[in-house]
Design a protein around this nucleic acid. Structure first.
Length: 471
DNA sequence: CGATAAACTCCCCTCTAGAG
DNA sequence: CTCTAGAGGGGAGTTTATCG
């Protein structure tokens, strides 16, 4: 790899870390992951090249920045007098869950902030504005104009001069005086306060792919874009972004929509702290994100199957083909299903479709019992998981992919892919009956359905194969 | 008295109108 | 033009009413 290509990769990585820049150690780890032959000496050489690069700034953060593993190196340089090392006090998430803290309230608790509902926040702002209104009236118009001007300037520049110091060619901020390219010396002196970042314009152009600024990307929108890019393939949820940005739910929706419309991010359904929310992923990482890939796979599967219509060639009400009852499934089972997957649904729908299309179902019918277990749920389940599965089944029905049918004299409720329906949709009466009894009978156990008495004309005469997993 | 259904409440997402 | 308040809808948990 040529040095200019390597430097470009460095800039790509550094730009994603936004205005606070990257930890040189993590940058080195990133390069090693791309090319394991990169050693300390070579990285020192790369560092010297970065120091000369016009789009790169070497900065010192006011406080040590913890690495992802929690490591903090304070260095030999004196720390600001107001610096407080992070305490070992960790927010007890399990305890909060027991207290039924959820969603945004949990996100705020983890941040150590006080949670206010949107209504409370609006009320707070009103009270605050009423208080300042009185004070402002006493001030002269000139004073207010000066203040506004300053505020606008600060927002426009979007710099971080108050939290970082820019190291010039020679670092003489504190003793000892060092050359900027002396990486080992700088690391000893500054520890994890040492950062390398791109200049503001470079960050903007690399994150947005735009050569110049546009009005749609306001400082707040750009701030959210930086946070999202920094999270890389993991992405970040609307619930987590709220406390970080200080935006209400409505505002968060607006900001996320702006980024999605600009094709800078994608948004997929997700679950965090027991609440369904949206996950925002920066465009460059969508194809490395498991959540996004699962979501897309299922969406495409649904599109391929699509609503099935027509093709009625056979009267299935008289079909009494004698299937081997209680067939043993050749199906191997799914990996354990998570709470998040149950809530968001794309994995649930994908697995249900696989089950319904499985060759072991000789009559293409699957009883609506133990669905959670069949699609990979392990252990006991609660009402919310059952409700979620029924909801996802209903969505498949609404899309015209799956239908409910009543089978045999015992009115066994079954699911079937519409494409296997040889006579059309089930009778409306039967469908209504199903809807009314769904939730009550979800837990029913059963295997095959016998049909030795004359059938009700409304029902389908099938033996039902029930898939059983070898757990 | 226990099971079930209905009502209520809270949280989150989405959309729109209007303020700044 | 950006941003936010507010309305509306849906999901989930809890409480209350009803029924057998």
């Amino acid at each position: 790899m040529r040095i200019h290509q390597l430097l470009d990769l460095c800039l790509d990585y550094i730009a994603l870390d936004g205005v606070l820049g990257s930890d040189p150690h993590l940058l080195q780890q990133h390069l090693i992951s791309l090319n394991p032959s990169i050693d300390d000496d070579f990285f020192t050489f790369v560092w010297r090249q970065l120091c000369q690069h016009p789009s790169i700034q070497i900065i010192v953060a006011s406080y040590p920045v913890p690495r992802p593993d929690g490591t903090i190196i304070t260095g030999t340089a004196p720390l600001p007098s107001d610096y407080e090392p992070p305490t070992d006090e960790v927010v007890d998430v399990a305890q909060l869950q027991k207290q039924l803290v959820k969603g945004r309230a949990m996100a705020y608790a983890i941040q150590g902030d006080e949670y206010r509902t949107d209504k409370e926040a609006i009320q707070d702002r009103r009270e605050a504005s009423q208080r300042t209104h009185g004070q402002n009236q006493a001030r002269s118009a000139k004073e207010r104009a000066e203040k506004d001007k300053l505020k606008k300037k600060k927002l426009k520049s979007g710099t971080t001069a108050d939290v970082v110091r820019f190291l010039k060619e020679v670092d003489n901020v504190e003793e000892p005086v060092l050359n900027r390219s002396d990486l080992p010396g700088l690391l000893t002196k500054w520890g994890t306060r040492l950062r390398v970042r791109c200049v503001d314009d470079e960050i903007y152009s690399r994150l947005t792919g735009l050569p110049h600024k546009i009005s749609k990307i306001t400082p707040v929108v750009f701030h959210i874009l930086q946070i999202t890019a920094k999270c890389r393939e993991k992405g970040i949820t609307a619930i987590e972004l709220g406390p970080l940005v200080g935006a209400s739910q409505g505002s968060m929706f607006h900001y996320m929509k702006t980024l999605v419309n600009l094709k800078l991010c994608v948004k997929i359904p997700s679950l965090i702290h027991g609440s369904v929310t949206s996950l925002l992923i920066y465009r460059s990482f969508v194809h490395q994100s498991d959540a996004y890939l699962n979501y897309e796979r299922q969406r495409k599967a649904l599109e391929e199957i699509g609503p099935i219509t027509g093709g009625v060639t056979k009267d299935s009400t008289t079909d009494t083909s004698a299937d081997t009852a209680h067939a043993t499934s050749k199906f191997g089972g799914f990996p354990p299903l998570t709470e998040a997957e149950v809530a968001t649904g794309h994995v649930v729908q994908e697995r249900l479709l696989k089950l319904l299309d499985h060759p072991s179902l000789e009559n293409h019918l699957l009883r609506m019992v133990n669905l959670l277990e069949l699609i990979g749920w392990r252990g006991a389940y609660q009402v919310r998981q059952r409700r979620a599965v029924l909801r996802h089944v209903q969505r498949l029905i609404d899309k015209g992919v799956v239908e409910k049918v009543v089978v045999g004299n015992q009115n066994a409720r079954c699911l079937r892919l519409c494409k296997f329906n040889l006579e059309g949709a089930p009778a409306p009466e039967a469908r209504q009956q199903l809807d009314e009894t769904d939730e009550m009978e979800m837990d029913d156990q059963g295997s095959s359905i016998e049909h030795d008495t004359p059938p009700d004309p409304r029902t389908y005469l099938y033996h039902v194969t029930v898939l059983r997993l070898n757990l």
